[in-house]
Write a protein that binds this DNA or RNA. Structure first.
Lengths: 242, 242
DNA sequence: TGATGAATTAATGTATACAGAAAATGTAAA
DNA sequence: TTTACATTTTCTGTATACATTAATTCATCA
């Protein structure tokens, strides 16, 4: 359909992964010409992509022109996690209050089953599958609200740096009982859906907020693991640059 | 300081007011060349501004290229109002939980006093002053959270089309007891601040949500006032184009 | 008359050229 | 050695040219 790969899309994808790789976390200004040559496109679509990433919060503008990789404090990340819980909490509350589409609810159940499969063997969790299906689940939750605006907002906050639990998967060995926390997360998933089915908006909202706060636990462990870790966790390398 | 008026800033300001004027609400594609000539700048900064307004939700992209003025349903606007309450509610909850900066709190009180003055004579309310001071109040509320992220988000949602009570001021004569509702809003303002002072986060959050929902009442009246009103209310003319 | 399709027109997406500002480099003086 | 200033270079912000794609017009045929 509209799979027309525009240069801007390429620039956005490429630049995002470059930034996430941490290569430019040295807080210097991002050189436009060098980046555009490296990505194989001109400065125009690259600058568009930079604008988007500034809006996303991954980059920040410099007063004297241009932009650089945004630097986050621990508080920033905690706030992003909190915000994510608030937005998703609102989405599920609206879904419960207004009544969720049964077809979408069935789709949610299928995704939850696939997450179960990924978690089937607690010692050999299929992390790649979990990341994909978990993202699907959260996208579907926003969809259940029936509100286009909430979907867009949920999509936005899910991209906030380090707001997602998946961001911590690469450093799981540093986090005690990480696998167990994934199982707990899945229990929360089912509880949220159950609350929506029962039309209990307040409970659904509360559960979604608590669910988001699981990420805080992981963040705390990584933050106390010393500066060495910061440079090994892609997103977190930004934090150490503060 | 950084008052360097860049062409992009001019484009953003100019385009926003043009869109708000309703002149292009006919859902046709926005012509880039014509607009750039009219605003006295080239297509490059104009397209930047269009990107920003798309992100803001005021414009929407067309599959075949370009963009047009976004069309809103009543549900869209109600969702925007709800979201505003949720975001501001979170900001004041965090402010209460974390403890608000006394200096900022004092500034809030001064703004509230100025709102009182604007509302002093219920039959001759100073609407212009009210709009300005009310905006200041809500900006300061977000500031009280101490979170840069919450400030940015609050700023964003306050710009969501028709999410703000001020958007209805022009059509006040169509809304029964409109002036009285402004007085009620001011009472809510003080109650919110009081809850923050008392460190009662949950109450502050609840009050802020209810406060935002005042706008729903106004919206309902205008929605029932017939299609003629839609074309007279700048933002709402978008609604009738659906 | 209505519909289908070719041809023309217009408009978007992208590249690039250019001007002006910021940073870097180098030189001279204290 | 360090500071201040001048010079050079680089880079951003903006304008514009170009190409490709969408819209429109017009002509032909059923």
């Amino acid at each position: 359909m509209s799979d027309r790969k525009t240069q801007f899309d390429k620039a956005l994808l490429g630049l995002r992964s470059l930034v996430m790789s941490g290569e430019f976390s040295g807080s210097a200004r991002l050189p436009e010409v060098a980046l555009s040559e490296r990505l194989g496109l001109s400065r125009t679509p690259l600058r568009q992509a930079m604008d988007h990433l500034v809006a996303e919060g991954l980059l920040e503008r410099i007063e004297t022109g241009g932009c650089r990789v945004a630097r986050f404090t621990l508080d920033d990340i905690n706030d992003a996690i909190e915000l994510r819980g608030v937005i998703e909490g609102t989405a599920v509350r609206l879904a419960a209050e207004r009544g969720a589409d049964p077809v979408a609810l069935a789709e949610v159940e299928r995704v939850l089953d696939r997450i179960d499969i990924a978690l089937k063997h607690p010692d050999h969790i299929d992390f790649d599958a979990y990341i994909v299906e978990n993202a699907s689940f959260h996208r579907l939750l926003a969809h259940l609200s029936g509100s286009q605006l909430m979907q867009r907002e949920a999509d936005r906050v899910s991209r906030l740096p380090l707001a997602s639990p998946s961001a911590f998967l690469r450093e799981q060995e540093l986090i005690p009982d990480f696998n167990a926390s994934l199982l707990r997360a899945q229990h929360q998933h089912r509880a949220i859906v159950e609350a929506i089915r029962a039309r209990e908006g307040a409970r659904a909202e509360y559960l979604a907020r608590e669910h988001a706060r699981l990420a805080r636990r992981n963040l705390d462990y990584l933050a106390n693991a010393g500066p060495g870790v910061a440079t090994r966790v892609p997103g977190l390398s930004l934090l150490s640059a503060e």
